[in-house]
């Protein structure tokens, strides 16, 4: 199996405070990976470093490429609506995407819009939190690329929307693409995760297969994750 992402000796400081230190991480293609950690642990920062939105030291290779522009074309990240004003219509944002991302698949987007029940004639400022997240998910998944970064796609979302989003992830993630989903609320997405990566103490504390955790420790993902903070489980 080939690797979609290789991170070596990545460190990042913000205002002289260490956020991440000596991060090494390799992810294979075709996986769904849960990125877990407390609020402020550096999950979002790690994603931002992968996209080049934040600048750290160390090397990040996406699909064997280190050139920034190529990396960007291989990554679809959920943080992208900040540049639009509140009165922008969703349709117009879609036009922007269609124009700017050559891998944006209009048909996939239409399917996602139907499935997630999105009304694209609304304005950005008029969307509820759940609807906004659905729009972001639809835009992110409509691109056909190799690495998807979903930053806390479920925070503050009602359970029906959450279920729809999870289903759309299973339905539309390309087989040869890897998806990283960050969350601090694990139980809902646990069944869809191939592996988990825990960010703790400024680095990757654990990187394990989910079913391996269940087999080896007889623990649920959530219980295992919590045990890391209580020091209950011996890990390597």
């Amino acid at each position: 199996m080939t690797n979609v992402l290789t991170i070596e000796q990545l460190s990042y400081k913000h205002n002289l405070k260490t956020i991440l230190e000596n991060v090494d991480l390799t992810l294979e293609t075709g996986k769904i990976v849960g990125l877990l950690g407390e609020n402020g642990a550096g999950k979002t920062t790690l994603m931002r470093l992968i996209t080049g939105s934040a600048k750290g030291s160390g090397t990040i290779t996406v699909c064997g490429d280190r050139a920034v522009a190529h990396q960007k074309s291989n990554v679809s990240f959920t943080e992208q609506l900040k540049g639009f004003r509140a009165n922008t219509k969703i349709d117009r944002i879609v036009d922007f995407y269609r124009a700017v991302y050559p891998d944006f698949n209009g048909q996939r987007f239409e399917e996602l819009v139907t499935f997630l029940q999105i009304d694209t004639s609304l304005r950005l400022g008029a969307l509820s939190k759940g609807m906004k997240e659905k729009v972001v998910i639809a835009l992110t998944l409509a691109r056909q690329t190799h690495l998807y970064l979903l930053d806390e796609p479920f925070s503050g979302i009602d359970s029906m929307s959450r279920k729809r989003i999870i289903s759309s992830i299973i339905k539309w993630k390309p087989d040869d693409a890897t998806m990283i989903i960050s969350d601090h609320y694990v139980s809902e997405i646990a069944p869809i995760l191939d592996e988990i990566v825990v960010v703790k103490d400024h680095t990757i504390y654990t990187h394990r297969q989910s079913d391996e955790i269940r087999e080896e420790f007889g623990l649920g993902i959530e219980a295992y994750y919590e045990s890391l903070y209580e020091g209950g489980v011996n890990h390597d």
């Binding site: 999870i166 289903s167 299973i170 339905k171 993630k173 087989d175 069944p191 079913d211």
Partner: peptide
């Protein structure tokens, strides 16, 4: 496989396994 994954809300890889 994908339909099963969607129906059961699990990962495609896990269904495959």
């Amino acid at each position: 496989v994908r339909q099963l994954a969607v129906d059961l809300t699990v990962n495609v890889n896990t269904v495959q396994r």
